[in-house]
Design a binder for these strands. Structure first.
Lengths: 228, 228
DNA sequence: CACTCCTTAAACACTTGCGTTGACGAAACG
DNA sequence: CGTTTCGTCAACGCAAGTGTTTAAGGAGTG
């Protein structure tokens, strides 16, 4: 972009460039507030007035911190999603057999949801099958990350089938989506601030249930309920 | 409502009252087209122009068949959802132990998704946490149905735990939501018109995996390997 | 006090989308 | 062949949402 046309845009650029801590923090608060609003109302349903109210600022003040709603939304989503993918890649490239990795993946995913609440849930809710054309590039990028994530799940599942540690109940991708479903669905009911059960417990329970159902126990190493 | 204010509204009422088969069929086509658009773009994202295009009619022509977008959306959703709940209630009140019922419930749910495609998926996608205030009454109604459905799942799960046929890996509602998640998540990837795997197969696979993981086999009636 | 940072009220132009209107062609029917 | 009905069409008015700007502050700091 050339040079900001308006006064406020100029001032925003200036403030952002000098990296004032207070400015950046307030900005961060606004992003967090936006995340809550997006979670509650969706990208389309949320408007800047809502976000202003949630963050306790005037609508015009938002422009001192962000350019527009889309910039806000992108900012809400991108970082968390990328970080999340990195974790998954780490697990895939680490030690253990397929079921173990899957188990860790499930739990780590739930923990991410908890720690970053509600940002990743915002990403889930907007499943990105339908995004306004304007943000096609960004949406494509996010979809790619999403696909990469799912690929890891599928890959691990297939690996388990190949190495004989997982029963081939159905094609690997069907099973992988099943796991994504269990975990992703928590966006509808899990709120870490109010929940009586932790994310790790949920992830652990799902791993226990689903994986135990498809796992082929290793000979001589019985896998009781302790999962030692 | 008093009397239609506009001319087209009067003509719509008239046509609807005389129950002309051709009229009703065209109307049904429009509803079906709307379902596809809603599935693709979401309630907020879809506009009447999209729906008109999809159904091959002019935007204004839609008003000859339906009053407005909301009416269209409600019509898309309601019937299918109610029918779906009825099926679940039938299974709950039928024969069998908890795991068997759960298994049948999972498969029947997948089959509903397939048969009514994409209508029930539209309902899932709009998770109704955020609906414009105007339709609060309708939304409340739909949420109630949804809750009733989930309650059946939870009830069966709890019953299984109580009768000792299901391991209490986690609270019943957590497990129930896990199942809802696996199945509901299919809305993101399952398209019966293009799928190489049937809805029943998917449901069967999920039931096998998850239920096998939590089921406590009945004595003397051995169910598959291991896990005795 | 003067100065800067940040906020805010108020307004504007602009776009999108909804609901409506009155008229038009085509078929149906006397 | 006139008339009526059906389905459609181009166009309009209206409201809401959004981006943006202006001008005017208050709060804190030197």
């Amino acid at each position: 972009m050339a040079e900001p046309s308006s006064g406020i845009a100029r001032r925003r650029e200036a403030a952002r460039n000098e990296a004032n801590p207070a400015y950046l923090q307030r900005r961060q608060e606004i992003v967090a507030a936006a995340a809550r609003v997006f979670k509650a109302k969706g990208l389309q349903g949320a408007n800047l007035a809502d976000i202003a109210a949630e963050s306790g600022a005037d609508r015009a003040s938002l422009y001192y911190y962000v350019g527009n709603k889309e910039e806000l939304f992108h900012e809400v989503v991108r970082e968390a999603v990328v970080a999340n993918l990195t974790v998954a890649q780490g697990i895939r490239d680490g030690e253990g057999n397929a079921p173990d990795k899957l188990r860790r993946l499930i739990i780590s995913l739930m923990e991410s949801y908890e720690q970053q609440y509600p940002i990743l849930y915002v990403f889930i809710q907007e499943n990105l099958t339908h995004v306004p054309d304007k943000h096609a590039a960004w949406a494509r990028d996010m979809r790619r990350i999403n696909r990469d994530y799912e690929s890891i799940l599928i890959e691990l599942m297939q690996q388990g089938i190949d190495e004989g540690s997982i029963r081939p109940v159905a094609p690997a991708w069907v099973m992988a989506y099943g796991i994504m479903g269990m975990v992703g669905w928590t966006n509808r009911w899990f709120n870490p601030d109010e929940s009586t059960i932790s994310a790790a417990e949920i992830g652990s329970a799902y791993a226990d249930s689903f994986l135990r159902g498809i796992e082929i126990p290793v000979r001589g190493r019985r896998r009781g309920r302790g999962d030692a």
